[in-house]
Write a protein that binds this DNA or RNA. Structure first.
Lengths: 158, 158
DNA sequence: GTTGCTGAGTCTGTCAATCAGACCTAGCCT
DNA sequence: AGGCTAGGTCTGATTGACAGACTCAGCAAC
């Protein structure tokens, strides 16, 4: 009954690496704002309630990691400022955000429902994540997914 | 050009609530282990390198929040111990895990690829997340998703 | 029957991160 | 000159992460 996973190393696990970026308390909340079109420091700060210092840190980290980019803009009658926009890497976080949103809506929402949904640009229908295997089968139940070592798996040493 | 999102409150945002659970550095890594069939304290500790204290905290928090349950078991010649198993709520995190894995594999993997994949139990094909709208359209590009207020949205006061 | 092992923790002290609140700054406007 | 605004920094108190030592219950070997 020893789990097979024990034989494999986790040093190069991409979930752990992803969580180094996404796994800080406010990162995904900040990204939610950017996905919502809120791109400016003070708007984010007021909406999320994240302390200035932390917000500055997170934004800098996300820029450094390539999830956001910092772009200059200038409104008439103001000096130049910067706003934060998603890079391609950042845009590809939509599925993660939608997955978290779906889970949160199911288990943590108030009775009246979720305050935020994701819609399909073309038809307006609500967007959800679905698990599907490479042969096109829909994977309906969580139990139908089984983990297995991938091409980068390494046997454990020690 | 003021983003519409600024008019809506975020106090009941389900992403923020979900991140209260998932958004700590090690939570998803711990869950990865459980999904992999590693259910015991010491196995997790050795594999993940999470400090004992933190692991104990995370497990207790996940049990308290209903993501894991603590089950007694007994191996012959040993006293009774406990292991950690996913609840229904926990199993429903598969899409989140697969989404994070997919993103990590794309942007953060070593050249030889990911050490872990998710497979379809029936056919063995690799499982990925897909965005799909409620009318069945596949949402191919991230830009085709647009956020919008949901049923629980509240106007901002102040 | 004492010594040792094992799994699953707790205790302690150090060091880093979070947070709230005040302060700073560049350019614009009056 | 004085005030406003966006986007920050600086400071000090609290909280969390972490490593390493210690605990504790039951089995097992000497």
């Amino acid at each position: 009954m020893r789990p097979a996973a024990l034989d494999w190393s986790v040093e190069n696990c991409t979930i752990a690496r992803a969580m180094e970026i996404l796994g800080e308390r406010w990162t995904l909340v900040v990204l939610r704002e950017v996905f919502n079109g809120v791109r400016r420091f003070d708007d984010m700060r007021v909406r999320t309630g994240v302390p200035r210092q932390v917000l500055a840190n997170r934004l800098a980290m996300l820029v450094e990691r390539g999830v956001l980019r910092r772009e200059p803009y200038r409104e008439p009658g103001s000096r130049e400022r910067h706003e934060y926009r998603l890079t391609g890497m950042g845009l590809d976080l939509w599925p993660v955000l939608v997955a978290v949103l779906g889970w949160g809506d199911r288990y943590l929402a108030d009775p009246e429902g979720s305050p935020l949904t994701a819609a399909h640009r073309d038809c307006g229908g609500e967007v959800r994540v679905e698990l599907r295997c490479e042969r096109g089968h829909e994977v309906a139940r969580p139990r139908d997914v089984v983990p297995r070592p991938g091409p980068g798996a390494r046997r454990r040493t020690g």
